[in-house]
């Protein structure tokens, strides 16, 4: 286990290193000089220009600049947003909370509703199962931005139950503001998770070892809990994990749609404003979160399934 974790961490660091290089390199190659962004296109005296170049290391070679940036990143310094004249770390710090809350609320909906519906569908009567299948088919076809627009219209404009824009103040108000965004973000994923759960539980019900448990006279709820659900938890956990990982980037769409002051929405703005330092910083944070989530899935998978030699994920 220790060896596995060590190896996985090494791979993680290598991936992040290459990814950070890719992010930095891509934006370095982008056309347009940061000086133009700094000066807003006005002509400035050469000594001011030199000062700016000095300050932002603009005249250093690429690798030196990458190294300076990376060593800053390791210390938690993600550089400075040129248009905002603000530390990228500060910008991220102000916005990461909203994104985190949104993703966690969505994850909770996906796990409770998605896994719950899947189990009910697999174990319930035919009519219940059909209902689950129908609901998941409809919601599977609803991309996040489409769900956002529909939810805003129905629950915001028509019924007026929830606010359609903004973040809100205080816990309860924030929760109210996050409800529709989380539902929009969850729509497709709930359907996917419900389907996979349903299939996994059904497959497990047909397994011979479940028949053994029945043949021993165990109560049905014990058979279901100890054998069917325990074993179905392996594929379910993988899919739930992959789905939650995918939310990290998708949150940008929903945050933008609902005017939430989160990381993703700000990344989109920064990309439009050519605020490269911010784009680099937020991208790196998102990639980091995405990769870490994937490592957690791998570890969970290895813990749940003793047959797996650590480090390989089935499916």
């Amino acid at each position: 286990m220790i060896a596995f974790l060590g190896k996985r961490m090494a791979m993680l660091l290598a991936t992040l290193l290459v990814a950070s290089f890719a992010i930095y390199g891509a934006l370095y190659l982008a056309p347009g000089s940061p000086i133009a962004a700094l000066t807003g296109g006005r002509s400035v005296p050469p000594e001011v220009l030199a000062q700016l170049e000095e300050r932002y290391h603009l005249n250093e070679p690429f690798l030196t600049r990458y190294w300076l940036w990376l060593s800053g990143v390791v210390r938690g310094d993600l550089g400075e947003s040129i248009p905002l004249r603000q530390d990228v770390s500060t910008i991220i710090g102000q916005r990461i909370g909203v994104t985190l809350q949104l993703v966690m609320l969505t994850a909770a909906i996906i796990i409770i509703v998605g896994v719950g519906l899947g189990i009910v569908g697999a174990l319930g009567r035919k009519s219940v199962d059909f209902g689950v299948l129908l609901a998941s088919t409809v919601s599977a076809a609803l991309p996040a931005f489409a769900a956002a627009v529909l939810l805003q219209f129905v629950f915001g404009v028509m019924l007026g139950w929830f606010p359609v824009l903004g973040t809100g103040d205080g816990f309860v108000d924030q929760l109210r503001h996050l409800t529709l965004p989380a539902l929009a973000l969850a729509a497709t994923s709930v359907a996917l998770v419900a389907r996979v759960t349903r299939t996994a539980v059904r497959d497990e019900l047909d397994k011979e070892h479940v028949q053994t448990a029945v043949s021993r006279g165990l109560p049905w709820r014990d058979v279901v809990r100890r054998h069917v659900l325990r074993n179905a938890a392996i594929p379910i956990t993988t899919v739930v994990g992959i789905t939650i990982a995918s939310l990290i980037a998708l949150a940008a769409v929903v945050e933008t749609a609902f005017g939430l002051n989160g990381l993703g929405a700000y990344l989109v703005q920064a990309a439009q404003n050519k605020d490269f330092a911010t784009v680099q910083g937020i991208s790196l944070v998102l990639v980091f979160a995405f990769v870490i989530t994937n490592v957690i899935i791998d570890i969970a998978y290895a813990i749940l399934d003793p047959r797996v030699t650590l480090g390989s994920r089935a499916q």
Binding site: H209, T212, S215, G217, R226, H227, R230, I234, P306
Partner: peptide, 24 residues
């Protein structure tokens, strides 16, 4: 009553690998 009956009748199946839960 059915579960009691099943407990009194033990079954030894053909393929133990499939009939024993692999994750326990």
């Amino acid at each position: 009553a059915l579960r009691k009956h099943r407990a009194q009748v033990a079954v030894v199946f053909q393929d133990p690998r499939a009939h024993i839960n692999p994750v326990r």
